[in-house]
Amino acid sequence: MKKTLTALALALTATTALADYPEKPIEVVVGYSAGGGTDVMARTVAQFLEQELGDGASVVVKNMPGAGGQIGFTEVAQADADGYTLGTFNLPAALALTHDRDADYGLNSYTYLANFVEDPNTITVAANSPYQTLDELLEAARTDPGAITVGLSALGGNDHFGANMMAAAAGAEFTLVPFKGASMARTAIMGGHVAAGTMTLGQTTAFPDELRVLAVLADERSSFRPEVPTAKELGYDVKMSSLRGFVAPAGLDAATAETLRAALSAVNENPDFQATMAEQGNPIAFMLGEAFAATAAEQDAVAARIWAESPWK
């Protein structure tokens, strides 16, 4: 009897707690500095999420930059799974760095809530480059292995994986040049210091006259640049992109996760939100719960395979 009462009492508190959620501010941990692409997305989502949760809900973004995002990802993985600590999650970067170092988290440390952004990688050259098509570039990389230098934002990220997968698919060899960040790599391409790059499509959009995008590494053409062919169309089945979404620590109770997922879906359906994201140049690829978790697992496998085949450190 006593047991049933306790259980009943517990169940009651649980439901009341649930009914009240959120009863205090929700913190969103961003593993990068304020003003970066991920931070801007987090703040935009946070603003709309407050509206959707209603009832004066407060969503606060907390920047914990450092170690390529690792400090922030670790913070979320180790936080209490009470629904009051969420985090932004970048794929494949967040999981790639669990392979090249001892990280205190992994694929299963999170409850996957929703992915918002997917920005496909590209094969891009300068507008004045002699290579007009993907095949011309790959031919050069096959004839003289290593002669084509490819600028990346870093090793162990989507730029790097995209270049590796492209080289493997084409039987070519690139010389990889990891700059500090995508914009440095882009500038080196524009200045003719490297021959090509694998930056994401979003990073090329502000430079239409300076860059030539040879191919998008996606299954379908992008609505932002419909004239650019996919690598798949050109005969190379290579797919790589940068994803940004929201996660919570693993073990978040199903009801809270559902509340959050419903609210995030509502955010995604809000036309104002869509407009703001488009203005920021963020291509939306909304994926909820299971689908997001499956993509994360897929990305983790890609990172693990590339790390096993050609470790980058």
Partner: peptide, 30 residues
Amino acid sequence: PALTLGIPGTAVAAVMLGGLLVHGLQPGPM
């Protein structure tokens, strides 16, 4: 270089780029 190429000349310019991005202002010739 920060406004035209997206590469900040100093640490301060790097942070300011963030401030521009917040307002949907992407660096570049556009």
